[in-house]
Design a protein around this nucleic acid. Structure first.
Lengths: 126, 126
DNA sequence: ATAAATGGTTTACACGTGTAGACATAAAGA
DNA sequence: TCTTTATGTCTACACGTGTAAACCATTTAT
């Protein structure tokens, strides 16, 4: 996986649309985002341009304009952000992070059982 | 807990020093941070000032200058950042987040057992 | 009392980000 | 073909952040 570029919050909104469905025409990105936000079309265009400059989006001709597609995988992005968060707030150690999350968010015993299964699965594969 | 102000990455470094030991003289914050970073004293002073403006640090006279202490709890900050992260990257749901973390970071079965104990403890207290 | 040192306050500047208008170009309709 | 319309590019600006020098006040040593 290529190094993930820095993606700002607003840009992330754009990426989420593109990850969901691509290649997607610029026009559709805009109308999709205008449902959820009160950004003007020019604002969204700026974000798309910036994402292309950052190497996060690629494009291809389609109809009157372009269609866009992701150049970075959502899973890679999520993995990267998670690592950064873990490092930034918990010095990189998972345990205190899990403790905090469990302390403050809703989680059931079944969820933990599932987690256990996952870990077993993973260890088996190694 | 009062609403947590936005604290930038560099400012967070300052907060970590102050959380560890307070009230702490400005001078000590500076020498402590100069060990870990290559920030100039003026840079660190800027961060301290901004944190005071944001209501994250308080101060009291001590010796020739001031000593500083946190106005927000580290646990509140961590809780807040965790929520924001969860919301931003995982739409607020804990389960996919845990799955990702477990998938990509090292975690042992014992850790999960401990997690289970914690949850039981918490549920008991409710 | 003056000078030096120590630490706090003001000012500065570049870069990313949120925000968006103005401008250009190409396609489509009259 | 000429005008309208849709879509992409350029320019703009304020605010936060990283970065730091310059300046000022207060204490301490000479």
């Amino acid at each position: 996986m290529n190094p993930i570029p820095e993606i700002s919050e607003a840009e992330h909104q754009v990426m989420k649309i593109v990850w969901k469905d691509h290649p997607i025409p610029g026009m559709e990105i805009i109308s999709e985002l205008m449902k959820r936000t009160d950004w003007k079309p020019s604002t969204i265009k700026t974000f798309i341009t910036r994402l292309m400059k950052k190497g996060a989006l690629g494009y291809e001709k389609s109809g009157r304009g372009y269609s866009y597609f992701p150049l970075i995988e959502e899973t890679d992005f999520v993995k990267n952000e998670s690592r950064l968060f873990l490092k930034r707030i918990f010095g990189g150690s998972l345990k205190p992070m899990l403790a905090t999350m469990v302390e403050n968010e809703d989680i059931s015993l079944e969820d933990v059982e599932e987690l256990k299964r996952r870990i077993l699965e993973k260890k088996k594969g190694e």
